Amino acid sequence: MNPARIARFGDSERYFICPICHDTLHLDGTSLRCANRHTFDIAKQGYVNLMPAAKQSPFYNSESFANRARILEAGYYDHIRDAVLDTIQRHIGVPADMGLAGLRGDARPAILDVGCGEGFYSRAVQRANPQADLLAFDISKDSIQQAAREDSSMAVRWFVGNLADLPVRSHAIDCMLDIFSPVNSEEFHRVMKDDAIVIKAVPGVHHDEQLRELARKQLRNTDYSNEQIIKQFGEHFDVLETSTVSRTFTMPPDDLRTFAHMTPLLFHVDIDALDLTQISALTIEARIIVARK
């Protein structure tokens, strides 16, 4: 195995705890191991499975993540990615030419990407902030395998994990990223430092509206809103700001079909029954919320 794929876990005791007994995990050869000898091997792709019994949704498999990667690599979510990067920079409060190096003196700040999927945002954040320690997890082994395989930096600490019981030390994280993923406020509070921030993105009200209108007869709720999710988030965190980023793209038929198959908003829709030729453009929109404990 490439030594760099292992080296990123060299200081695992700073961040990781055993998912079985919650004791500290240390790098031991090519594995993470706790004092009780629970052992988790580092896979050849460069990730560690800290949720061996994980059961992923049938909607999130290698095919769906490959579809997501195609859409992301085509640039349709670049405006959301750039807004997230800008938000990290502004709220951590370090000059752009310093990256994150000055956040905590000589300590490397830690960013945790929650439900990172195929790693699109994690890799972008790591490239923009090489001085930070970036941890990224998903419950889907397929997605983490893909994310680690495509990480040319070999710097992100990829792991399979459970949002309900994060294998992460308490008060270890400076910045939580939650991009289109669920929130577990209790676990977020536990792993966050006292002055840490959360950056959360949810689909905007106009997100996928052209596809949703086409699939109206198959959708349970034709009116789409994340206001209840935003309200609940605000009950557990001190919201500092919210913003909306939105772009409407002219999209070729192949990309549109790929998008329709990968978006969670249409998971319960018969895509083949839709006449996608009626759509030539698609809106991709997100609400970005910044909050503290």
Rank of each mutant, 00 (worst) to 15 (best):
T39F: 04
T39Q: 13
F40C: 09
D41S: 14
D41F: 08
D41C: 11
I42V: 12
I42D: 01
I42A: 00
A43Y: 01
K44R: 15
K44E: 06
K44C: 02
Q45T: 10
Q45M: 06
Q45V: 05
G46A: 10
Y47G: 02
Y47F: 13
Y47R: 02
Y47K: 07
N49P: 01
L50H: 09
M51W: 14
P52F: 08
P52T: 08
P52M: 03
A53E: 15
A53W: 09
A53C: 09
A54Q: 10
K55N: 11
K55V: 15
K55D: 10
Q56D: 15
Q56F: 02
S57A: 10
S57K: 07
P58H: 00
F59W: 11
Y60D: 15
Y60W: 13
N61W: 09
S62R: 07
E63K: 13
E63Q: 15
E63G: 04
E63S: 11
E63V: 13
S64T: 15
S64Y: 07
F65K: 07
F65P: 03
F65V: 04
F65R: 00
A66G: 11
N67T: 03
N67H: 12
R68P: 09
R68Y: 08
A69T: 10
A69N: 11
I71R: 00
I71P: 07
I71L: 15
L72R: 01
E73C: 01
A74P: 10
A74G: 12
A74S: 15
A74Y: 00
G75D: 06
Y76T: 05
Y77P: 03
Y77Q: 02
D78W: 08
D78V: 07
H79G: 10
H79K: 08
H79M: 10
H79S: 12
I80P: 02
I80T: 09
I80K: 07
D82S: 13
A83F: 03
V84E: 05
L85V: 14
L85R: 01
D86R: 08
T87A: 12
I88L: 07
Q89N: 07
Q89R: 13
R90T: 09
R90D: 13
R90W: 05
H91F: 13
V94G: 05
P95G: 12
A96E: 14
A96V: 11
D97E: 15
M98C: 12
M98E: 14
M98T: 13
M98F: 11
G99Y: 06
G99K: 07
A101P: 04
A101E: 11
G102F: 04
G102T: 12
L103S: 05
L103D: 03
R104M: 10
R104G: 11
G105K: 00
D106I: 11
D106L: 12
A107T: 09
P109T: 12
P109N: 12
I111R: 02
I111H: 01
L112G: 07
L112P: 09
D113E: 10
D113C: 02
D113T: 06
G115S: 06
G115C: 03
C116N: 01
C116Y: 10
C116R: 04
G117D: 08
E118K: 05
E118D: 11
G119D: 03
F120H: 03
F120K: 01
Y121V: 14
Y121T: 11
Y121I: 15
R123T: 08
A124C: 03
A124I: 05
A124K: 03
V125Y: 05
Q126S: 15
R127V: 02
N129I: 06
N129K: 00
N129D: 05
P130I: 08
P130T: 09
P130K: 06
P130S: 13
P130W: 00
Q131F: 10
